[in-house]
Simulated assay, not measured.
Amino acid sequence: MGVAIVDHHPMMIEGARSWLAAEPRLTLLSTSTDLETLLADGQSSVDVILLDLQSGGRLVIDKVAELCRAGTRVVIYSEDTSPATALSLLDAGAIAFLGKNESREHFVQALLTAANDRPYVPPVLAGAIVADQSPDRPDLSPKEREALLLWFQSMSKASVARRMQVSEHTVKQYIDRARIKYTRIGRPAATKKALLARAIEDGLVHPDEMGPDARHTEPIKQSSQGEAT
Rank of each mutant, 00 (worst) to 15 (best):
S167M: 10
G71V: 11
D176N: 11
K172S: 12
R179F: 05
A189C: 12
C68D: 01
F107H: 08
P119G: 04
D139M: 08
K157C: 03
P83H: 06
L59Y: 08
L67Y: 15
D117W: 15
S156T: 14
L112S: 02
L67W: 14
Q109R: 12
A84S: 14
E79M: 14
E66D: 00
L90A: 06
K63V: 00
P138F: 10
S103C: 03
A128K: 04
L112G: 00
I185N: 02
A128V: 04
A65T: 13
P188H: 07
H106W: 12
W151I: 10
R69V: 11
Y182D: 01
T81N: 12
I61H: 11
P188N: 02
I76F: 03
L196C: 10
D117Y: 14
A94L: 12
R198M: 02
L196H: 11
L90D: 09
L140P: 14
L150E: 04
A199Y: 10
I61S: 07
I175A: 04
P122S: 03
Q165I: 00
D117R: 14
R104H: 12
V166F: 07
G186L: 04
F97Q: 01
Y174M: 04
A197T: 15
Q153Y: 01
V64L: 03
C68T: 11
L90P: 10
A190F: 07
L98C: 06
I185L: 15
D176W: 05
G93S: 14
L87W: 13
P142F: 10
S134D: 13
Q173M: 03
V171Y: 09
G127L: 03
P119Y: 13
G71I: 14
V160Y: 13
G127P: 09
A115N: 02
V160C: 15
G57M: 08
L111R: 10
L196R: 13
A161S: 14
L148S: 06
L196T: 11
R118Y: 12
A197L: 13
E102I: 06
N116D: 06
L59Q: 10
E102D: 09
K192D: 06
L150N: 01
R163C: 03
A114P: 14
Y77M: 01
R163H: 08
Q153P: 10
R198I: 00
R104I: 00
G57H: 06
K172P: 00
H106N: 09
P119L: 05
I76H: 04
T113H: 02
V160H: 09
D91N: 07
L90H: 12
E105W: 05
S141A: 14
L125C: 04
Q133T: 11
R118C: 04
A92D: 09
A94S: 15
Q153R: 08
Y174N: 08
L111P: 13
D117T: 11
T113A: 03
L90G: 06
F97W: 09
Q173T: 10
D176P: 00
S154H: 02
R179L: 05
K157S: 05
V75N: 02
A65Y: 08
V160P: 12
V60H: 13
R69L: 13
R163A: 10
V160T: 09
S82D: 15
G93A: 09
N101A: 13
Q165M: 03
R104L: 01
A197V: 10
P123W: 11
G71R: 13
G99T: 02
R104G: 05
G127W: 03
I175Y: 09
D91E: 13
R69H: 15
A199F: 06
K193E: 05
